[in-house]
Simulated scan of single mutants.
Amino acid sequence: MYKFTSPDTIVSQVAKIDRSDRWSVHRRLQELNISCWCPQDGTLWVEIDRCIDAVLLRSTVQQFTSTRYELTDWLERCWSTQVLSTTNN
């Protein structure tokens, strides 16, 4: 049985990934210090403790589920996005 690191975390099953890619995603999430586990049934479970964990999970899953076109389109949109400052200079 998995013991959660904090009672305030969100635990989610990642279902959109092919079973063959789950171990690669699992390994990458561990490299990013995000708590995750794969039970014997082949599912992937992730413990989201902070907002950055959710962003990193999305990014990692996107690498395995998106087409090359979708990934390049996303990258081009990120490059062209202008960040507006809300602070007074």
Score class of each variant (00 low, 15 high):
8 D>W: 13
10 I>S: 04
10 I>C: 06
10 I>E: 08
11 V>Y: 05
11 V>A: 03
12 S>R: 13
13 Q>C: 08
13 Q>E: 14
13 Q>S: 08
14 V>N: 02
14 V>Q: 03
15 A>S: 14
15 A>Y: 11
15 A>Q: 09
16 K>C: 03
16 K>G: 04
17 I>E: 02
17 I>Y: 07
17 I>A: 01
18 D>M: 05
19 R>C: 07
19 R>V: 10
20 S>H: 12
20 S>D: 09
20 S>M: 11
20 S>F: 12
20 S>P: 14
21 D>R: 10
22 R>G: 01
22 R>H: 05
22 R>L: 11
23 W>N: 07
23 W>P: 03
23 W>L: 10
23 W>H: 13
23 W>E: 13
24 S>W: 14
24 S>H: 14
24 S>G: 10
25 V>M: 09
26 H>K: 15
26 H>G: 03
27 R>C: 01
27 R>V: 05
28 R>K: 13
28 R>D: 11
28 R>L: 12
28 R>M: 11
29 L>A: 04
29 L>I: 07
29 L>D: 03
30 Q>W: 11
30 Q>K: 15
31 E>W: 11
31 E>T: 15
32 L>G: 04
32 L>P: 07
32 L>K: 10
33 N>Y: 13
33 N>G: 14
33 N>W: 08
34 I>R: 06
34 I>Q: 04
34 I>Y: 10
34 I>W: 09
35 S>R: 12
36 C>M: 07
36 C>K: 09
36 C>N: 15
37 W>Y: 07
37 W>D: 04
37 W>V: 10
37 W>K: 09
38 C>L: 11
38 C>V: 10
38 C>Q: 12
38 C>N: 09
39 P>V: 06
39 P>R: 02
40 Q>S: 13
40 Q>W: 09
42 G>E: 01
43 T>F: 13
43 T>C: 08
44 L>R: 05
45 W>E: 03
45 W>M: 06
45 W>R: 06
45 W>K: 01
45 W>Q: 02
46 V>P: 00
46 V>E: 01
46 V>D: 03
46 V>H: 02
47 E>R: 09
49 D>G: 10
50 R>N: 07
50 R>Q: 15
50 R>T: 14
50 R>P: 04
51 C>M: 13
51 C>R: 12
52 I>Y: 05
52 I>L: 11
52 I>N: 12
52 I>A: 06
53 D>H: 12
53 D>C: 09
53 D>E: 04
54 A>V: 03
54 A>H: 07
55 V>D: 05
55 V>G: 03
56 L>E: 14
56 L>N: 10
56 L>P: 07
56 L>H: 10
57 L>V: 12
59 S>C: 11
59 S>N: 14
60 T>L: 09
61 V>Y: 14
62 Q>P: 08
63 Q>C: 08
63 Q>K: 11
64 F>Y: 08
65 T>D: 02
65 T>F: 15
65 T>S: 07
65 T>C: 14
66 S>N: 08
66 S>L: 06
67 T>L: 00
67 T>E: 00
67 T>V: 02
67 T>D: 00
67 T>A: 00
67 T>N: 01
68 R>P: 13
69 Y>C: 00
69 Y>T: 00
69 Y>I: 00
69 Y>M: 00
69 Y>G: 00
69 Y>H: 03
69 Y>Q: 00
70 E>M: 01
70 E>D: 07
71 L>I: 04
71 L>W: 03
71 L>R: 01
72 T>D: 03
72 T>Q: 02
73 D>W: 00
73 D>N: 02
